[in-house]
Structure formats: C-alpha cells, structure tokens
Nucleic acid binder design. Structure first.
Length: 551
RNA sequence: GGCCCGUUCGUCCAGGGGUUAAGACACCGCCCUUUCACGGCGGUAACAUGGGUUCGAUUCCCGUACGGGUCACCA
C-alpha cells in the first residue's frame, strides 16, 4: 500500500505537519513540578457531582503546584450539545472556586494553546490523522451503520468478542482501488486506527490513584475521525493533551478500559503520555446494594439539587474534600478558619474504590461550615437562597437586615457556636417567631403544671422585667419568681429533693419561652428578648395571659 | 459473555507482615446545661471468602464470591 498516495487522497488539503504543530504549541515554561491539568467536559448543560470531583482534583493539583488549569470544551458530539452550556458550566464552577487560568471562556478563548473548543481544532487533528495514514497506522473504513450492526450481531451469535478487529475489520487491508472507488462515489468514511496490539499481551501501567495495574492490550481498530471529520474522544484526547502540554489527566475510572488504546495512540503519534489519575465513581445505596449515581435516577447527582436543598456551596465543597482526601476532616478540625489553600491536597490520599455518597455526612459537614460563618455571611447566603426558593423569607429578612442580622448573630462566634443549620431551609422554622406576622400566640403548656402557676410566673415577669438588665440580673429576677412560687431556683437543690418543690426555674423559663417564642425550644432566652425588644416581649407575655383568660 | 477495577465498623476511611486495628458521621449511654443547638466522656461495631508464601497474614500471591465499570461514528 502506498501510504503517501492514500494520505493525499484522504487529506488533500492538509499541508501542515506535526513539526509545524510542535512549533506552534511549544512546551510550557514552568517551574519544576508544576502540574498542568484541565477540565474537559462536553457541553450538555448538566453539571454534576462527578464533574466537580474531577474538577476539584485537577484544580487543587494545578494550583498547589504552581501550574495552570485550563478548560477545554469537548464539543465533538453536536447531537448532545446544549446551547449556553459552557456559560452554565463556567458559572457553576466559579461558585465552587474552580477558576481557570486559560481555556474556553463564555464568549471565546484565553490562552496560547487554543482554540479550546474541539470543533475549532479539526485542522489540527487532520494534520495528525494524515500523519498516521502516512505511517500506515490509520485507514479509511466505509462500513455503514447497518454493516457494523450486522457485525455486532454476528459476533454475538458466535460468542466472539465485540469490536472492529481481525477478520471483522473488513476495510483494514483493502486495496487502494476499492478505497478510491468508494471515495469517487462520494460514500462517507471514518478513519480507523490500525491496531497491532493483541489481547494476549498485558501492559503494566501505573495509575497515580489506582497504583499498579495490568491491562490487556487493545486489538480493536477504533474510530479516530468520524464521518464528519470530527475526532472521537480518544483521538482528540491524545492530540489535545499533548499539544496543550497537559501533564496530568484526571478522569473517571470508566475510562480505564480505553486506556490501552490511548497509550497506543500516544506512542503512534510520538507523544509522551501524561500521568493519569482515574477516580472511582460516586455510589449510592439502592436497597441493599451500592450502585453508581446515575443522571437518570438520582437527582442528587446534579449540582442544582444542592442549591435547591439549601446547602451552601462551601458545604458541598468541603464534603467532597473529605471524600477525596481522608485527612481533610482532621485538618479542618485543627484549622477551622484556615483558607482551603493551606490544606495540602494529595492524590496519594485518594481512594481507588468508589465512595458512597452520604447525605448525613454532608449535613454534618454543612452544620460545621455554617457554624463557622459570621452573621453577615449567613445572612447573605440565606438571602441568596431565599431569593430563589422562599420569597416570603427573603422579604422578611430583607425588610430589615439589621434586625435579621441580630437574630442570626445569636449564639454565633465564640468557642462553641450554635449548630442549628445544616441547610438554609432550617432557617425559617428557627427564626420565624421573631417576626410578628409569623409569631402565633399560644396558651398551651405542659398539662402537669397549674394554670395559676403559669399566670403567676408571667405576671411576676411583667412586674420586674427590665430590658436593660444584664443577663445575671435578668436571671436572678426569674429565680426570684421561682422562689416565690415554690419552684426551685437552684437546680442542684431541686435534683436532690424534687418532691420539695412544685417545679424548678427551668419550668418558669419554659413558661416565658412559650409566651415569647410560642414554643418550648428556642435559642437563649435572654438574647432572644434583647433582639425582640422590651415592648414586644411584654406584648407577647400579655397576649398569652390574655389567651389564658388572666387579664 | 470478554476485558478491567474494587472489597477494613451501617457509612466515610487511617493503617499496613507482629497494632488492644485509629478517627469521623450515624446510633446508644452518661455528664454539662433554665429549653434547644452545642460541648465533654464512654459504648456497640470492621479487615468478603478459600487456598498458599511465612515463625507469623487484615497487609504479599492465586482462586472464589460479591460490587462496579466497559465493550458506539457518546464523552
């Protein structure tokens, strides 16, 4: 076979050579040890946890090593492309602090190794396609979809391995006349790789996450260029990651089976392969068994699910970090307020198996994350959430932000901050009683107390309450009420001899709490009253007295 | 079906030829506490399985089971 003739026949317009490409995209000038990596999503408009896991890993690796992270859009499948997907993706990742140093942007490209959208790179791919033909390592195949389906069916019947190889590879060694005839007839063709691999051979391989692997060589003549001249993932991966000088490829381990083919490609093209990190899939419990999270069945795979559920971005981020690097949790505990950059992310800490997604754990992480935020931050985050998911809440908070802030400041800060919120949907039930139109006067109290006691306690409070009291004076007054009513003001004394009292000061506090907040549980009463203000506290106490028929 | 990957408490996982197999979440108990939310202390609970190699295996090797992935002109 005259490969020069074939190459010119297939790619008459390609005049550039691989050497030209090398000159155009020279090696990067980076410090020793700098990692160059990328996110390479297809623009389907659906951003999921898997993207984030991969992106986070790449991002940390690059930015902690002083190398660039870039975004390459894998838009080789026009059928799946969704308009606007690139900006959706970039926006979503920006929230998660995954910022690109170069690559595709919302309206173009930034960087010296572009274009960063694969459909704009066809000329580049064709240079290498032609080169492979020239080397006798690629050939055109004119099989129709029907023919390929027939081959597959036949293989199935024969219990043979699937794929285009060996005797099934009917265009692999066709004479050039046949090829020319098909071409002249205008029939579509794909370019296939001429594999010389054998499934009898194993290739040792070292994956940075999975460790030492032994893979079977590839013997399939995979498609390099589709009939529209656009490359498949495999070919584009080899060409792009070489020319963009990627040093580390992070991807899901569903790519492991095609890795031998990729390695073949790199060798045939004369490229040095990058280092690979294959990440195990995120799993979930389904009945008694685990399975990979699926786009179809599992809403929690979509990033939008977390926002709608009220999880702060930072919670999802830190949860994923705990899943990715097992020592992150310990580090965070020891350094509650340190920036993420201070954490030494390491692929050596990554688990080769797939992690089970655990929403309980996410909630726990989230409680801690939110408890570390100051009131202004929480308010801002809640407003941002409520704006889209609870307009009523938004209106209440936004009407008086100073007031909202003072509510959220209760128990915040200090060594043992309150941990009331795992998600922002927890906020409204937590603070609704601070708003008069949400607050409901009640006359319900536990049955084992005498109504006269409740009334006397509330009246006693009204008689002595002064908003200006400090917390000790304030509580002493409540204790005094307790004593007067035969309730123990000293809890220790009460515990030693409960029979001697009608109740204790906690019960008195409960009566007040019910009056002021409408419920038996609330944040610290003193703080609540300070926020509510003297008039509203009194109004509410009187309202309960009224409802009890005691006014 | 072929090929590949994986398997330590319920879950996330640390460890790695000799350990009382660590921690976190969840659960339970106790303590602290005027309620709640925290916090503290403690507890239940794990090396899938069978063979090797070895003085000794959870750790290394082989098989089995189970789980997952993959076998497109999708990525």
């Amino acid at each position: 076979m005259d490969t020069k003739l074939l190459a010119d026949l297939l790619f008459p317009n390609v005049t550039k050579t691989p050497d030209d490409m090398e000159a155009l995209f020279p090696e990067r000038n980076l410090p020793e040890g700098a990692i160059v990596s990328r996110m390479a999503p297809s623009p389907t408009g659906f951003v999921h946890l898997g993207n984030l896991v991969q992106g986070l890993t790449s991002e940390r690796l690059c930015h902690q090593s002083g190398g660039p992270l870039f975004l390459r859009v894998e838009d080789t499948d026009a059928k799946r492309e969704v308009p606007g997907a690139v900006s959706v993706l970039i926006e979503a990742l920006r929230h998660y602090n995954i910022l690109f140093d170069e690559g595709a942007t919302i309206d173009g490209d930034a960087g010296d190794y572009g274009p960063y959208r694969q459909r704009q790179r066809v000329d580049i791919y064709h240079v290498y396609a032609k080169q492979l033909v020239l080397q006798g390592e690629a050939y055109p195949c004119f099989c129709t979809e029907e023919e390929l389906a027939a081959i597959h069916e036949q293989q199935s019947a024969e219990k043979a391995n699937f794929g285009y190889f060996g005797k099934w590879a009917i265009w692999r060694d066709r004479p050039i006349e046949d090829i020319r005839a098909e071409l002249d007839a205008g029939h579509p063709w794909v370019l296939r790789f001429r594999s010389t691999g054998s499934i009898e051979h194993k290739i040792p391989f070292n994956d940075l996450i999975k460790g030492h692997l032994e893979l079977t060589e590839n013997d399939i003549d995979h498609v390099l260029l589709k009939s529209d001249g656009i490359p498949t993932y495999h070919f584009a991966h080899a060409v792009d990651d070489h020319l963009m000088r990627t040093t580390h490829v992070v991807r899901g381990d569903e790519w492991l089976p095609s890795l031998p083919f990729h390695l073949q490609l790199f060798r045939s093209l004369g490229f040095k392969p990058p280092k690979y990190l294959h990440i195990g899939p995120l799993m979930k419990m389904d009945g008694d068994s685990k399975r990979k999270l699926s786009k179809r069945k599992d809403p929690e795979l979509a990033l939008t699910y977390y926002r709608a559920s009220g999880f702060p971005v930072q919670s999802v981020y830190e949860y994923l970090m705990t899943v990715l690097n097992s020592n992150f949790e310990d580090w965070r505990r020891a350094n509650p307020d340190a920036p993420i950059d201070d954490f030494k992310f390491s692929y050596k800490k990554m688990n080769p198996a797939g992690a089970l997604f655990d929403e309980m754990k996410l909630r726990d992480v989230s409680k801690n994350v939110i408890s570390r935020m100051d009131a202004d931050r929480v308010l801002a985050e809640v407003l941002d959430f409520a704006k889209d998911y609870d307009v009523e809440l938004y209106d209440h908070l936004a009407a008086d932000k100073t007031y909202a802030r003072s509510i959220l400041a209760i128990g915040r800060g200090g060594k043992k901050p309150r941990k009331d919120f795992a998600v922002f949907t927890d906020v409204r039930p937590y603070l609704d009683f601070f708003y008069d139109d949400w607050f409901r006067v009640t006359d319900e109290y536990p049955e084992n107390f005498a109504k006269s006691d409740v009334v006397a306690a509330l009246n006693g409070f009204l008689d002595t309450f002064d908003i200006a009291d400090d917390i000790n004076v304030w509580f002493d007054k409540i204790k005094a009420i307790a004593d007067k009513l035969g309730y123990a003001s000293d809890m220790k004394a009460f515990r030693e001899n409960p029979e001697a009292y009608r109740g204790n000061v906690a019960d008195i506090s409960m009566f007040l709490r019910i009056a002021v907040t409408g419920r038996q549980n609330s944040p610290d009463m003193y703080a609540v009253m300070q926020v509510l203000g003297a008039e509203r506290v009194k109004t509410r106490v009187r309202a309960m007295l009224g409802k009890l028929g005691a006014l």
